[in-house]
Design a protein around this nucleic acid. Structure first.
Lengths: 338, 338
DNA sequence: AATTGGCACTCGTGTGTGGTGAGTGCCAGG
DNA sequence: CCTGGCACTCACCACACACGAGTGCCAATT
């Protein structure tokens, strides 16, 4: 276990490096922080920290920079979450309250997060699996062709065409519509399959085929369209730190375009609380020199989706975590109200 | 007017520069192209071309590079559209045919275009203004709260909540729903306002307020939500040519994130045929060192939206134009089928 | 009048050299 | 265990210098 002072030295190194973007040496450290010891002592501490793998030097005779392991320790033990100031919180709330629909909420959230953190923001659309059904609508487009529209409590709308095996009368349609809604309205997606299981039995033999088709389309929509969408923004911020190593910006952009990668990334994080993945902790190697800060958000107490930011490992963790947490909180509120 | 040979020299300069990304000199030109004249002659021609503003030299004693004006001439007079090869066309078709819904069509189109051109692809969602109404649905969410769902022929769905001034009975609702659909179903958005103008008169006095509210919400949706969405992809390709001038990649990324800018960009292009905007021809200054190749696409003979690519002014215009045209054509087909 | 070869000139680029300074590791003394 | 001192290491910068691609101009040729 590292002594208290060594931890303090590590914290100072991380803070200075994040601020200056340059390797930090023992002398500069003692000048900027009142550690109460001489540079020589700090040097010894640094040697230990390097042995333990928390910091490294890019070249001999240069200052030290934190390693992924160093950042990890910093985030876990040394840094708190820096809360947003009151004006910031008000600004967040005001900005999000102007949204007119779900797309707009997500779009605004992305912009906001990108601006606050000056990094790349990623926001997942509220997922279908954990939300509830607000309404199911059936429309007759043609005698044997229906349109199924599914509306969720988060404001999402999915629609599907259904080709029926036989013509379906208007009364049967109204009947099905009513029964469907009374059964699944307000219920969670996961519960829908059981809830509709015996529905066909309530209909005449000639209509059962169609009912069955409609139901399976509905279930398909629930499952297939769990395919989660997301929105990203603030990619221009990559150039802020890209000038150092333009080599790394490309794989990052590529990774960001692979929605699958991002979804996996967000999905891997723990359900509750904030997750910080640092450098090589990210499975995708394009993101090996970035850190991902993510958290779930939701309308109720439960998370329906995730959001987060992607930035250089050399980021302001406390500030970023504070912004991410605050935004997630307010988005949750907005969703609950709508 | 420039002589035939001088145009040939310009064409050679553009081609070589696009290929090598380096200023091209007189000697290299005569070696790579059989112009039938000596370097000295080419030098004279180059001097003329420079006087006329078609080419420029980055520094004294360096080769020449085309100016925006040079590219303009090249695109207008010297280059054709390079058609896709048969295998390429098949690949495009196969790739697009796998799409399951509108979002998927657009997403696939973006990926495809980005891959084909190795540049940034921009695809606008089929616009509401030029499409037609497939169906309007009204759902009672509460006694005095309706949900209005609008479905377009391109598969787009918009929904809005409507707070009614007074409770609205189920029969009135069914009546309004039926009348609405018989009037506007299959009609173009632009025509809807007149078509519904006298609808309130068909209802009892007590319901007119609600009908009016529903109608104005519908019209609002038609107008406001003409706000057109778009999808972009292939931003990682920016790094391919960004290493030369990393200074320019940032404003480009910023411009790409401003959907408004892009929509204006696409909107400005002519309705039919391909539009190429080169360098400073682009109003937005972040895009001053890029060219935009765009074209309309649509399910019928008419364009419902635009798509295009954004790349360095130093791009392969014939190839890019070929890819853009081909993709637009096939997307149109896919939309027509669905 | 157009083309060509020759020639002097420009200037960006690459290479090598030396100085500077931040930073280190080690050691002996407090 | 901490501290001051000291020698050593390199990355970085500035400068000089040579190289060569490319140019413009001119006189000769067709």
């Amino acid at each position: 276990m590292l002594s208290e002072r060594r931890l303090e030295v590590l914290r100072a190194i991380v803070q200075d490096y994040v601020g200056t973007e340059e390797p930090v040496g023992s002398k500069a450290l003692t000048e900027r922080h009142k550690l109460g010891v001489s540079p020589a002592t700090v040097r010894n501490d640094m040697a230990v920290l390097e042995d333990e793998g928390y910091i490294a030097q890019p070249h001999t005779s240069a200052g030290r920079i934190p390693t992924d392991k160093g950042y990890r320790l910093f985030v876990d033990k040394l840094a708190g979450v820096k809360p947003m100031t009151a004006p910031e919180r008000r600004a967040i709330q005001n900005f999000l309250e102007g949204a007119v629909d779900l797309d707009d909420v997500v779009a605004r959230t992305v912009r906001l997060l990108a601006q606050l953190t000056r990094q790349v923001a990623v926001v997942q659309y509220p997922s279908l699996t954990r939300s509830t059904v607000r309404h199911v609508e059936l429309l007759a487009m043609a005698p044997a062709r229906l349109m199924l529209v599914l509306i969720t409590d988060t404001g999402r709308v999915e629609q599907r065409m259904v080709d029926c095996p036989a013509p379906f009368g208007e009364t049967s349609l109204a009947d099905l519509r009513a029964r469907l809604n009374s059964r699944v309205g307000g219920r969670r997606f996961a519960d829908v399959p059981q809830l509709v299981q015996d529905l066909p039995e309530a209909f005449e033999a000639e209509d059962r085929g169609t009912v069955q088709t409609v139901l399976s389309t509905l279930l398909e929509t629930l499952v297939e369209e769990t395919e989660e969408r997301l929105m990203i923004g603030g990619t221009a911020n990559l150039t802020r730190f890209g000038h150092d190593f333009p080599l790394t910006i490309r794989p990052v952009l590529e990774a960001l375009e692979e929605q699958v990668v991002l979804l996996k990334l967000l999905g891997e994080s723990t359900d509750s609380g904030m997750t910080v993945r640092i450098g090589h902790e990210n499975a995708h190697e394009g993101l090996n020199s970035t850190s991902v800060v993510s958290v779930g958000y939701g309308s109720g107490g439960e998370a329906v989706a995730k959001l987060g930011v992607v930035g250089p490992t050399r980021m302001d963790y406390p500030g970023t975590m504070g912004a991410v947490r605050a935004v997630a909180r307010y988005v949750g509120q907005i969703l609950a109200e709508s």
